[in-house]
Design a protein around this nucleic acid. Structure first.
Lengths: 205, 205, 205, 205
DNA sequence: AATGAATGAGGTTTCATTCAT
DNA sequence: TATGAATGAAACCTCATTCAT
């Protein structure tokens, strides 16, 4: 563990932070590499020692941030010892909403860079070693749900899209209300959605 | 309105169309005024006779397109003679989804330029003379719903966000499935959401 | 013939002249587009209205200049009414050497951008309409020589390379002597080369 | 000479080789110091321990390579025990052409960096200790020729320029033919040139 | 002696905007 | 009105060189 390695990692983090702030503040396109370098406190040329260009930085940043967001929620869930499927799902959503409302930067940035397919990748591929447990959890999470719900992937898709787009509006613009005000309605809606996917008793195995 | 006026209107429309195509194709920032002018078949300088700059064009285009989208759906609804609230809502959604799946350009463009508040403006303000009936319809639509549902605005917000974000993924990326495949699940989900907002019999006036 | 067209042609010529001067002065690589634009008295961005980049300019300039050089020599030959093959060749060489010694810029520049194959193209393809007569002349020139010389193309190649490389040294560096001093030796050498390619009387058709 | 010295010399040679390859491949200006260092397998900063900059390296490399080329030819000539002037000259040319056709890198590089005056320096100054014999040989070579030829320096200049420029075209581009095909014509041309410089019997001392 | 991260001057290229025609 | 050549600010990116380790 040389001083140098440490220093390099620090610079990369500084660049990530500077970029996240600027991207969410001024938007990706309006942010220049000069801006990022200046904000990170390094020379322009140094930027290119760490990233190929602005797009490279964005991609790495998005991947990193989304993974972090979900991984933290997963860790908290593990600690919570909740077992019921619905409660687990609500717990995860709640945790993520909390994170996002505390860090709207992240929300703006991620929502500009997240599609359902990249999202799904976080659960369906073992991206990094750290994510291994996460992947396993997600699989068993889906398997478990299959006992009670039809088309659990569609259900999840529906819920994720709903949560994401409504919280975006509530957190960033307070529209049509602040998140805390809207939340009860959101959770009731989620339950309504789950209800609509629920297997009839007769259909169960 | 002489030939001249006509000609002017034609050019404006050409610019709108060119811009819509290019914005959705290459993105707003990557589209240059040269691109737009060339695609519209006019000279670069002429652009400035019609719009102040790219941003001006975008704003006017967004307003125009969204209004058009909803107004068409409203007109179709009028012609349909449906009366039940739920059926009317489903009809509107279905109509709009159809339009969007036929014109993904519009979907991409609008979703980059639509927030709940601009959306709501279309219904709560009398923007243009043409929209007058539309506004009246929307008010009575909401009033009518108040008899059966709690917080009808939250309900509408929830449904609109859900429809918009899921159709975006299905139409543009076919993820997690094509729109036609996902639609039944979407409609069931909407019914689930409406159910969750439904007034108990005892609560009714 | 609009003023505009005229003006455009003037600018292109100004750019050609500026580039020729700078390329031969500082070398191609060390010449920047800023240099060229400044010397030509136009704005940097204007450069890109006329050429794609520095390389595009160089190629067009080289083609243009070489063609001009040979075409002028050919025109002078036509006016001279010389008929003997050897005298015609010497006349052409003399004319070109004269041009080059008056314009060493051109010599430096062209010698960095001329290969035998590009050179030969000037004679073997009808590049432009102007060059048509030139092409015809060259063919009959070669045909005529076939009566007296073996492998006339090799002979020409040998002579051209010799003339070019020696005049380069003499004109630009005065090494090993000024062109005027070396010329007699050059011409004697050319005669020696032609002698070595000459068909024996017995070999003639 | 300790191990250290050896090591230093090795690195210098590695840099020379890397530079030669890259200069001839991508051209001098387009080759960066990073390229050279990387190809040579050393760190960028280390470059500056051996050369002042790219230009310094090029000059030293050119001097070194040309000297080597001629010195090898000279050594072979010594071993050959040829005595006639013309045969010696042809032998030298043949030897050098052979080297160059086996190593076109060298040809490209040298021809971009060789003028008649630097060339002549190799013969008219005692550059290094190794070259002493070479210098003596060249002087006696010229002296010897004076008995049969007028202006032997011009003759040599003429021949050298011819050989160099034609072999450049033949070896690198196979234009107008491969070297082996063109060679007989080249040698006949050289004899023609020598003939044109030959003293008449009456002129001899 | 060797390294390679850091620098920043300086190059290339793009494009919104102006303005003479 | 309509044009499109001209502009130049401002973006991107490279690379010779330095210097702390």
């Amino acid at each position: 563990m040389g001083k140098l390695e440490d220093n390099k990692e620090k610079k990369k983090t500084a660049l990530f932070n500077a970029a996240l702030e600027l991207f969410t503040d001024k938007g990706f396109e309006k942010t220049t590499i000069s801006d990022i370098a200046e904000t990170a406190g390094i020379a322009k040329g140094t930027f290119y020692l760490y990233f190929e260009d602005k797009y490279d930085l964005r991609n790495k940043l998005a991947a990193y941030k989304v993974q972090e967001l979900f991984y933290k929620a997963y860790e908290a869930l593990e600690a919570s010892e909740l077992s019921d499927f619905k409660n687990q799902l609500i717990f995860l959503i709640n945790h993520i909403l909390h994170e996002l409302s505390e860090n709207p930067f992240l929300l703006t940035f991620v929502s500009q860079n997240l599609t359902w397919s990249t999202f799904r990748n976080f659960f369906e591929e073992r991206i990094s070693e750290d994510g291994a447990d996460f992947y396993d959890f997600f699989q068993s999470f889906l398997d478990q749900s299959r006992r009670y719900y039809r088309y659990p992937e569609f259900m999840l898709f529906t819920i994720v899209e709903l949560v994401w787009s409504t919280c975006y509006s509530c957190i960033l613009f307070g529209q049509p209300a602040a998140l805390e005000v809207y939340k009860p309605h959101l959770y009731r809606s989620i339950e309504g959605i789950m209800q609509s996917f629920r297997l009839e008793n007769a259909e169960r195995a």
